[in-house]
Design a protein around this nucleic acid. Sequence first.
RNA 1: UCCUCCUUAGCUCAGUUGGUUAGAGCACAUGACUGUUAAUCAUGGGGUCCCCCGUUCAAGUCGGGGAGGGGGAGCCA
Length: 494
Amino acid sequence: MCALSFVISRYLRALMNLDIKSLLTGEKTDIQLTVRGWVRTFRNNQFIALNDGSTNQNLQVVVDFNWFDDALLKRITTSACISASGKLVASQGKGQQVELIADTIEILGDSDAEKYPLQPKKHSLEFLREKAHLRFRTNTFGSVFRLRNALSYGIHKFFQERDFVYMHSPIVSASDAEGAGEMFRVTTLDISKTPKTEDGNVDFSQDFFGRSTNLTVSGQLEAELAAMALGKVYTFGPTFRAENSNTTRHLAEFWMIEPEVAFNELKENADLAEEMLKYVIRYAMEKHADDIDFLDARLADEEKQKPLQERQEFSLKEKLNFVLDNDFERITYTEAIKILLDSPAYKKKKFQYDVKWGIDMQSEHERYLVEKHFKKPVIVTNYPKAIKAFYMREDEGCEPGFETVAAMDILAPGIGEIVGGSQREERLDRLEQRMKEMHIPTEEMFWYLDLRRFGTCKHAGFGLGFERLVQFVTGMGNIRDVIPFPRTPKNCEF
RNA sequence: UCCUCCUUAGCUCAGUUGGUUAGAGCACAUGACUGUUAAUCAUGGGGUCCCCCGUUCAAGUCGGGGAGGGGGAGCCA
């Protein structure tokens, strides 16, 4: 008897575990089952639009109000969590293939309709940002976060299929020499009365780690160490920058993917980045075609509100397909500058900032190259040495005054820099000299230099800003809308 | 950090040259209806007009300061 009930309960659970996405295919009908989810709307005292997060499509649960207690029906409010059991049948109505004729409904979690802040209508993204704990329950954020997940998995899948080793780089870092930006201090000292050294500075020898520590701004240097033994590695973890950046493209806490490959040179590095981007975009689009469709329509709707000249040339889907179907444009920095100097925009003095060889290109320049000139992702390589990081490999045979390094940035339409990478300087003497020039303490970085002392080799890698990738794929304009709980200057709610 | 715009009901927004009791749609409540698709119809409740100071007989409206938010720039991924 016990065994029988066990088998029955297993069978029932198998039925119960069907999510709404799979039920809506219409492959299974005339079966008895239970669904659980959150009420989106309750129309006509008769039709519940039930959502369980598996898709933006709702399952229509049909209620015969003559059979149910009025008190129960009153509790079926927007965002209430319910369990509904009944028979899944072909729908009599037009809007959906199947519907569930409810025998029993259980309220799992009430939702006071008067107090619940979200309505079955379009809300502004700004408003939802202030309700970040509830915005998962909207179609837009449902789609965004399912796609974020698919992109995340797609990245692991891409690297794992190519036998890369996933490496966890440290979150707490003692190095403040990475030069990637302002850092958040990590300390257990009582900040209201910090211990002081004789010369009046904070005595970090009494701190938890016995030295000054910060949150990581990059896992790259550590990834290089691993790549020099494991060959192909990647990191994928949180990254922290204490810059006072208030833009649609910056977060104080974000996730970054940093592959590092021994023996790779600049071109192979660019190949890897392009292949990876195409792979993960394709994966996410195939996995969640319906979410892409939803966001595509959403964006098209939003574009309609804008004046003609401000509208995007491509829809979201057109943009993504275009990226998949075409090679990224590859140009050197020197060529990019030449294009800018020859451009009508430059000749008509449309640029706010001047263009000449040696400048760090401004947003307006990058946008011109990507959005006006090439109209697709562009890989710009071989930047001037003077504007790039110390660890980038100096190019051979440069004209004096025009020294470049083996750097590469991938610029994406609408987002700007999505990938930044380089071939690393593997020659000890060159690296030491460069660090001295840039006042980077070589003693503290002994471990990084040791790599060049003991079996050095050419290697290359890049950093991909994960949220910028999610922005690109979802078409979301503000980076705060592609991470569940954004951390930005003056904002650490939730 | 700089430039710029915004802040009026739970949400989205209107509010004229400063003038009586600040409006609409949606949401919510009550009722009607019952195969709806953000259901519909009727009725109703709901306001620190972001805050402070000032000008004025009179401020949602004008001036100054502040706070919060959006967009752009810089820095970057």
